[in-house]
Design a protein around this nucleic acid. Structure first.
Length: 225
DNA sequence: ATCCCGAGGG
DNA sequence: CCCTCTGGAT
């Protein structure tokens, strides 16, 4: 993928500003070790990580590792997830996930992208989170709903699907920056550049954003009754 | 009514 | 490409 020096510089300028604005940007899912982060990230689909952090302490107290969770039945895990969206699918997925870890990976989380996405309930986004947070360098930039929305609003991409956006962002940033890119975009997305009511008046990259003041017209389809 | 650190299946 | 799984927050 060829990227013009001008475009690369424009993106780098906004990223540098975001790093200054959010020096503490990091993963906020509570976890101890790769297994717990993998499970927490699977649970985080279409749910705020605040909700995930409300259920994982009890979950990990009872099932702290792959071996213990692999021995559980999905029905005994379900009540522990009951306040999350998709809790039935997620209970089934994390038990199957734990069983595969025990069967094929000695109960450990593989530090390998292809092995990760082969696990039940684990897609590109989850695999990149685990690789980035626990093993230093993700395969590609984590593209969740925030990263998708902000990279579109900031004019970093014109693509509309997570896979294509991931490819573009990964080409825009060197490996050692990719984990931080997703985290600063997520922080900014939660605090300022929200989906429904972005607060451009309080945005630290307003002068670098082509959508400033009209961000509601980018992103997902407008309401318009 | 729309969104939240999505993934699997048709 | 589409649909489904699911509950809480705004």
């Amino acid at each position: 993928m060829k990227i013009s020096p001008r475009r690369r510089a424009r993106v780098a300028a906004a990223f540098a500003r975001l790093r200054q604005l959010y020096p503490d940007a990091r993963c906020e899912l509570l976890h101890e070790g790769p297994f717990q982060l993998l499970v927490a990230t699977v649970l985080s689909a279409q749910t705020t990580d605040r909700m995930v952090n409300q259920v994982t302490p009890a979950l990990f107290h009872r099932f702290p590792d792959a071996e213990s969770l692999a021995r559980a039945a999905p029905e005994e895990v379900e009540p522990l997830l009951a306040r999350l969206g998709f809790f039935r699918v997620k209970a089934k997925n994390i038990v199957a996930l734990a069983r595969q870890l025990v069967e094929h990976h000695q109960g450990k989380v593989p530090a390998d992208f292809k092995a990760l996405v082969a696990l039940p309930g684990v897609g590109r986004k989850t695999a990149n989170v685990v690789l980035g947070v626990c093993f230093g360098v993700p395969e590609g930039v984590v593209v969740d709903t925030h990263v998708q929305r902000l990279s579109q609003r900031l004019g970093w991409t014109r693509e509309t699907t997570p896979d294509k956006i991931e490819r573009e962002l990964t080409a825009l940033f060197p490996p050692e920056e990719r984990d931080l890119v997703s985290h600063v975009l997520i922080f900014h997305g939660r605090r300022v550049c929200s989906a429904q009511r972005p607060v451009c008046d309080r945005c630290g990259v307003r002068d670098l954003c082509p959508s400033a003041g009209r961000a509601e017209h980018i992103g997902r389809k407008k309401k318009r009754a």
